[in-house]
């Protein structure tokens, strides 16, 4: 398994074999960055966690750190799985000169997989993102916002990554698509053993996709909650207290 570690000293990315390491896929040890107060977190393989909190608490920054797109200003960050990110600006992340199909296949460019395997992965990603196959031959810019968001989600599922980072991945989806993704994505994540980090302002999305929640407060408060039975009211109450405080 590939190991990527970032430290505040700027030593940068390191890679190597880690066969005898514990099952932690993500380890944050006092990690801070501009906009993100110090945070410690450990995620094991296959875990699904939702990050919630008011605006400006560093949720997107945290995802960018995990994706290796930003560096921590302090602390130690270790990521032991290849990340894939669905950014908040999902439309801008699609390549307008490639059809939807070619956008989805681009992450597999280097893999040189047989055609049957490609089609199987394509079908799986389309199902999980609730994306009709009729859209494959279109330009991404010809799609609606919700459809574009589902293309970005399907593309992230194509590799498949070990660590799936979702920044408000259903913000533009209509209710039918949202319900379909809530049903299909956790199943696919379990099937592929994906570790999932979801940033969302939607409590129902968080409860449907994640098994635990991490709440970030404006003045560096952190609160972890298990989701599941009775998770929604607990989460709502905790969020209310965090925002009020």
């Amino acid at each position: 398994m590939a190991v990527a570690a970032l430290t505040a000293s700027g030593a940068g990315l390191t890679a190597g074999a880690a066969s005898s390491l514990p099952a932690a896929v993500v380890t944050l040890d006092g990690v801070a960055a501009p906009g993100l107060a110090p945070l410690s977190l450990r995620l094991t393989g296959g875990e699904r966690v939702a990050i919630l909190g008011p605006n400006g608490t560093g949720k997107t920054t945290l995802l960018r750190l995990l994706a290796g797109l930003a560096r921590p200003s302090q602390g130690r960050l270790e990521v032991r799985a290849p990340p894939a990110l669905v950014p908040q600006a999902f439309a801008a992340s699609l390549l307008p000169w490639r059809s939807v199909r070619d956008n989805l296949l681009l992450p597999l460019q280097r893999a040189r997989l047989p055609a049957a395997e490609l089609e199987q992965r394509l079908g799986r990603a389309l199902d999980a993102a609730a994306l009709p196959s009729a859209l494959l031959s279109r330009w991404p810019q010809a799609l609606s916002g919700g459809e574009q968001q589902r293309v970005a989600l399907a593309r992230a599922l194509m590799q498949p990554p070990g660590l799936l980072l979702l920044d408000e991945p259903m913000s533009a989806l209509d209710i039918a698509a949202r319900l379909a993704v809530r049903r299909a994505l956790p199943a696919l994540a379990d099937q592929l053993g994906l570790t999932l980090v979801l940033v969302s302002h939607d409590v129902d999305d968080a409860c449907a996709l994640a098994s635990r929640a991490l709440l970030l407060g404006r003045v560096g408060q952190r609160l972890e909650l298990a989701l599941g039975d009775g998770g929604r009211p607990r989460l709502l109450r905790a969020l209310g207290e965090l925002c009020a405080g």
């Binding site: 994706a67 992340s93 681009l106 593309r155």
Partner: peptide, 15 residues
């Protein structure tokens, strides 16, 4: 060009 496009391609690990 939007930063998100370059970042998306970077995360795909293309050469």
């Amino acid at each position: 060009a939007p930063r998100e496009r370059a970042e998306a391609v970077r995360l795909m690990g293309l050469g």
